[in-house]
Simulated scan of single mutants.
Amino acid sequence: MKLNDLRDNQGARQGRVRVGRGIGSGLGKTGGRGQKGQKSRSGVSIKGFEGGQMPLHMRIPKRGFNNIFAKDYAEVNLGEIQKVIDSGRLTATDIDHDALKAVGLARGGKDGVRLLGKGELTAKLSFTVAGVSKGAREAVEKAGGSVTVPEIVPAADKHKAKHRTTQAAKKAAIQG
C-alpha cells in the first residue's frame, strides 16, 4: 500500500442534499417541508408560541424582585487598589471614580464607586467615592489616608429647599 492508494471508506464522505431540484431527487417540489404555511418558509420565528394558548414561560410563577431604583456601584476592594499601586499603574494620591476607571478597576457603576475593605492597604491615599464600607474606611484611615463621600441632594429636596427660602423671604417682607 502506498500513500496515493489511501481512500476514505465507501460512503464515509457524502455530498450535501440539494433540496427542491425535481421529483427524481426524492426531495423535490416542497423540499421536505410539507406544504404551505409559516413553517414551510424560511425565517420562521415561533419558538415558544403555543397556538394562542398561554405559553409555558408566561404560565409558570416568577420569583424574586428586581429593584429598578437600586444604585449601581462599581465595587472595588482595597487589596486590588494596592496591587495596582505596587505594579506602578496608579501613581496618584487623590483617587476618584475616573482614576479607578482609567486603571480598569471600576468597570460599570453608573452611580460611582463603592470602596470595600478586602485586602491590605499600605499607601497613604485620599479617596473621593460614592460609598464606603465601615471596614474600608477604618483601613484607609489606619494607613494615614482619608475618605470623602460627597452628599448628593435629590431633585425633589432641591425644590423643597428653594420653596423654603422663598417662604422665608415672604415672611420677612411682611414683618419688615
Rank of each mutant, 00 (worst) to 15 (best):
D5E: 03
Q10K: 06
A136G: 10
A123H: 10
A70H: 05
H97Q: 13
L115E: 00
A161F: 15
L100G: 00
A169W: 10
G48E: 01
I85C: 12
G64R: 00
M58L: 10
I68P: 08
G145H: 01
R21C: 03
A139D: 03
K62L: 13
A155P: 15
K171M: 03
D94F: 05
A173N: 08
D86G: 04
G32W: 01
V76T: 01
N66P: 00
P150W: 08
G131D: 11
Q14C: 06
S146C: 05
L121R: 01
E120A: 04
D157R: 11
Q14E: 11
G15N: 07
G20T: 13
A173M: 04
E50W: 06
G144I: 15
S25A: 04
G79K: 01
R16G: 06
N77S: 15
A173L: 10
K134T: 15
K2N: 05
G64N: 00
L116C: 11
V19H: 04
A92F: 09
S45I: 04
K158E: 15
R114T: 04
K2S: 07
G176M: 05
L56H: 07
K71R: 09
S133P: 13
A123I: 02
A139F: 12
G144T: 03
T166A: 14
S87R: 09
S146R: 14
G88Y: 14
H159R: 06
I152V: 03
D111N: 06
R7Y: 12
I174M: 06
A99D: 14
A136W: 03
Q38R: 05
L105P: 00
A173C: 10
S45K: 08
V76L: 01
M54S: 06
S25C: 14
F65P: 02
A143T: 02
L125Y: 00
A70F: 00
A169S: 03
A172H: 15
L100F: 14
F69Q: 10
N77L: 06
A172K: 03
R107H: 12
E138K: 14
D111I: 02
T122P: 01
A139E: 09
G11R: 11
Q53Y: 07
L56D: 12
R114D: 01
V153Q: 02
K83A: 13
G144M: 11
D86V: 14
K142Q: 14
I23N: 15
A130Y: 10
T122D: 11
G104V: 04
T128I: 08
